[in-house]
Design a protein around this nucleic acid. Structure first.
Lengths: 210, 210
DNA sequence: ACAAATTTAGACAGGCTTGTCTAATTCGTC
DNA sequence: GACGAATTAGACAAGCCTGTCTAAATTTGT
């Protein structure tokens, strides 16, 4: 395992103050001195790790956003699958778990570092997701007033049943992820779905709440 | 400030490993020895704090649940107010913030302690909230299949826009809380509300999706 | 195969923390 | 005011961790 990967693992498990360089060296399979040669000191190593994780997580999120169903065949199934992918590739995976924990644990101690994360991460990914929902609404598949709100609510609903698990830092089972996504998307569509599926004739005025 | 309060504050700010007894003593305004006299050692002190916070937070949550609108005059407004109270009294307040942070930060290190929290906390509060939603549905105000799912989705929606803020450990402004609750409750009611307000004639078959 | 660069093990000083001990001081109560 | 209980300040040993240093071993490029 690389030094950065080992350090991420140890910092997450033990927190910054509880981690020590010898643990990281042992887990990375290098000598302590090599870590000092590469990264200077403990704090610089920590910063390098957060930057690295932010970058990798962002890449994963954007890659997953690019699989958003723009022309869904089965809107419910496609959104559920998207929510599951999001969880799988960005939230439950190693990098996502680590980054989330480091932000929660050390966020207050490094305000500038995490302000940077906030801009590069949520600051760029939320608008990207919102744009996809806006497009879906524009194409007549959904009835959305505010795409930014809808995007955040979509993710919140998809993860609604995983909150306690995330709190404790553990990873939900595949079944739990699918279950939560299914329930979340169904509720999302009850709120934002067209009352009647889009016909091949294309967009029509909404029939809802008439 | 009492020893327990000071310790909660310091453990949250510095993490278990980063906290030291002298800080806690200084913040509590007592001598180090007094802490050792009362609590034995650092780890016992930590456990005492988590138990204390769990108890106080639970009390707050149950007190707030008891204000759930069983006979709402204005369903939307009453649910928004309830969501705001929940945030205010249980999530954004000092105890809620501290307990959440300790669980996130040290949850993996004390599995039994936090399993205990899980049973006493979420294990008891979620069913209580779900029961209130079940009652509201039974009384004809909502259309809910699974009250447990609906309860979790209600809270998830109400907090949907506060996630990033919570992540970093900061407290949202009053406006942000109200905004998120308002948007969340509106979406919740689009999904679970009766299509038409309940009339004084009482429960009727839904008119939806006709 | 050889020279330069990198990595290693281990020792080391300096600093910090925990938990104990003691002697003096303050507090509560009668 | 006096007595017992609790609290305090401070010293202290033992342990751990960081970051540096050195000399030997290993890897790398040519």
């Amino acid at each position: 395992m690389s030094i950065v990967d080992a350090a991420a693992s140890v910092f997450c498990r033990e927190s910054f103050a509880g981690a020590n360089i010898d643990m990281i060296a042992a887990e990375a399979g290098v000598s302590r001195q090599t870590i000092y040669n590469h990264h200077g000191d403990k704090e610089k190593l920590f910063v390098a790790i957060v930057r690295d994780l932010t970058e990798r997580c962002n890449a994963g999120i954007f890659a997953t956003i690019s699989t958003f169903p723009d022309q869904p065949k089965d809107l419910e199934a496609d959104l559920i699958a998207f929510a599951v992918r999001m969880n799988h590739n960005c939230i439950c995976n190693r990098d996502g778990k680590f980054l989330r924990k480091l932000i929660q644990t050390e966020g207050e101690r490094y305000p500038e570092l995490f302000a940077e994360w906030r801009e590069e991460g949520p600051g760029r990914t939320w608008p990207a997701i919102a744009a996809r929902f806006a497009r879906l609404a524009h194409a007549g598949f959904l009835e959305i007033d505010d795409p930014d709100v809808a995007a955040r609510q979509f993710m919140a609903l998809a993860n609604a049943e995983l909150q306690t698990t995330f709190m404790l830092g553990s990873t939900p089972t595949e079944d739990e992820v699918v279950q939560s996504a299914t329930n979340g998307v169904r509720t999302f569509l009850r709120a934002f779905g067209k009352r009647q599926p889009v016909t091949r004739a294309g967009k029509q005025t909404a029939l809802a709440s008439a």
